[in-house]
Amino acid sequence: MANRAARSLLSVALTFLGLTCVTFFIGRVIPIDPVLAIVGDKASAETYARVRAEIGLDLPLPVQYWRYLTKVLHGDFGNSVITSRPVLHDLLQVFPATLELALLALLIGVVAGVPMGVIAATHRGRWQDQVIRFLSLLGYSMPVFWLGLIGLLLFYAKLGWVEGPGRLDVAFDDIVGPVTGMVTIDSLLAGEYEVFWNAFWHLLLPASILGYLSLAYVARMTRSFMLAQLRQEYVLATLAKGLSPWRVVWVHALGNVWVQLVTVIALTFGSLLEGAVLTETVFAWPGLGLYMKNSLFNADLNAVLGATVLVGVVYIGLNMISDLIYPLVDPRARDQ
């Protein structure tokens, strides 16, 4: 047990080191001058040189990396050029916006995607399967940017069913202070139900678009896992013993694919938490994706590095959570 824990920790440490190292060095070789992002195009040579020295770009690369790593290990990701605030502060502000979006999207993706995958598998080759596979394929192949714009045009501009881009209407801005950073949760905590509903209607469309993309992946994978299970002899045996087809499919067969599904769901969640750049752009959603995009385009290296480390930590965390969930859904893992 101790060995396993040590191995896990070592693996996490190496992943973290690799992540920071690759990101750091890529950040230093991109053809954008990070000093320009700070001082602008019209700065004098003196100002340019001073700022370059201030941010340590005059030092050898390994020294710069060592300095950066030491600071990160102390929780200091440096200051963002764009926002002038500590990167950690920024990440704590933008990440909840992405988390809020990702949670609802995942919920939609899983609640709809898993049953659709099961139905497609149990109706293999029939119209139900064709419809679900078509919907999945559509989710896979349609550009999210286009889907977002069409969604806005239809459900916001034409039908008026949802609110438009942004997290809140102007009239509801700054009513609720941040606690979790997720406006829906914070407004409920504050008892501001009008704000909650406004935030919810703003959230619903982007979350549904992302949820649809997750659904496409989850449904396809569920179908594939279920098809493999339904070919197993135990399925035939349980049916022969008189168990209802419903119970065989939804309890026994589905029960056996949960381990694989947990991995799929964790990866889906991870990709949602990376920040959906295009969705966040279309919906003016101030999340991690938009933050990373702006940071990259402005050569805001501290912000890019901080956000990348955060994404890495999210993946590491999700892997660890998946490991913890396996025994809950698979008794064999419990025995091990």
């Binding site: 939609i108 709809a112 049953p115 139905i119 916001y156 609110e163």
Partner: peptide, 15 residues
């Protein structure tokens, strides 16, 4: 299952 993602869209925005 198909309707789940769209279940909440039954409200007219007015702001």
């Amino acid at each position: 299952a198909a309707a789940a993602p769209f279940a909440g869209w039954v409200r007219i925005a007015d702001a």
